[in-house]
C-alpha cells in the first residue's frame, strides 16, 4: 500500500482506494484476509478512526466482509465488482472526456472509431 499524504484526497478515501487496487490486481484474493485496521494504522501512522472509515466504505460496497473477532476478508465476487466499477469509471471519466474533446476538434464518430482502432 502506498499513501500520498500531500494529496488533497482525504486519507480515508485513499485507504479504500489502495485496498480496492490490491483486490483488482489480485494481491488479495477473494476469501483472503486483508491487513487489519490496527496494522494499517500502525504501519502508516494513520488514525484508526480514519482507517476504519475507509474500510467501512469497502464493506458498504460489498468488497470486504467483516468477520467478528477474526478480521476483514475479501468478499466473494469482489474482484469482478471492482472490474465492473472501474469500467463504469472508465466510461465516465475517460470516454466521455474523449468524446467531448473530439467534438471540440470536430472529429466525427467514424473518424474517432478509426483513431481508436489505430491506437488499439
Amino acid at each position: 500500500m502506498r499513501f500520498n499524504f500531500n494529496s488533497s484526497e482525504p486519507i480515508y478515501l485513499q485507504v479504500a482506494q489502495q485496498v480496492q487496487e490490491a483486490i483488482f490486481t489480485k494481491t488479495y484474493l477473494e476469501g483472503e484476509q486483508i491487513p487489519s485496521t490496527t496494522e494499517i494504522s500502525r504501519d502508516f501512522h494513520i488514525n484508526p478512526a480514519t482507517v476504519l472509515k475507509g474500510m467501512n466504505l469497502l464493506v458498504a460496497d460489498g468488497l470486504v466482509e467483516k468477520k467478528r473477532g477474526i478480521g476483514m476478508f475479501v468478499a466473494e465476487g469482489a474482484q469482478s465488482k471492482v472490474v465492473e466499477k472501474r469500467r463504469e469509471l472508465f466510461y465516465q471519466d475517460e470516454v466521455v472526456k474523449l468524446i467531448s474533446e473530439a467534438q471540440k476538434l470536430q472529429i466525427s464518430q467514424t473518424e474517432l472509431m478509426e483513431l481508436i482502432k489505430r491506437g488499439f
Binding site: 499513501f3 499524504f5 486519507i11 485496521t37 490496527t38 494504522s41 500502525r42 502508516f44 501512522h45 494513520i46 488514525n47 484508526p48 478512526a49 480514519t50
Partner: peptide, 26 residues
C-alpha cells in the same frame, strides 16, 4: 498508534512539526 489501539488511551500531542503527525490525529 499501536499503544492507542491497544489501550484506548487519550493522547494530546503538541507540536509544530505537523506533517509527520497529521494522519495520526483525529
Amino acid at each position: 498508534v499501536d499503544n492507542y489501539v491497544k489501550t484506548g488511551k487519550t493522547f494530546v500531542i503538541s507540536t509544530h512539526l505537523i506533517e509527520e503527525i497529521t494522519n495520526s490525529l483525529e
